[in-house]
């Protein structure tokens, strides 16, 4: 039961801290923000990897493999595109 309690606490804490930080993100960065959090939401990759930590049937293997492909697609795609996007923002007078 303690475990469940701890998990709920972690959920609430992470939500509150995330909220406090993200509410201050300027509008200009909302698209990169969503694209990055999108990549973060693919932490399900951890779950997908854990599926392979114990013996699996072949069905589970296929499903786990699909989960890893989609999650990695999400992680790598999300971070790369966020980086690309942020790299486009340029400020003229800052260069001087």
């Amino acid at each position: 039961m303690f475990d469940v309690f701890l998990m709920v606490v972690i959920f609430v804490l992470a939500f509150v801290v995330g909220y406090a930080l993200i509410v201050r993100v300027p509008q200009m960065l909302h698209t990169p923000l969503m694209s990055m959090t999108n990549a973060i939401s693919a932490v399900t990759i951890l779950g997908a990897i854990l599926l392979f930590a114990v013996p699996t049937t072949s069905t589970e293997k296929v499903l786990g493999a699909i989960a890893i492909v989609t999650a990695m697609f999400n992680v790598v795609g999300g971070f790369v595109i966020t980086d690309r996007m942020l790299g486009m923002f340029k400020k003229k007078d800052a260069a001087a």
């Binding site: 701890l6 972690i10 959920f11 992470a14 939500f15 509150v16 995330g18 999108n38 939401s41 932490v43």
Partner: peptide, 13 residues
């Protein structure tokens, strides 16, 4: 725990 924390942050965002 990592999954929970990351997921909750994204949900907040």
């Amino acid at each position: 725990r990592l999954l929970i924390a990351c997921g909750a942050t994204v949900a907040a965002s």
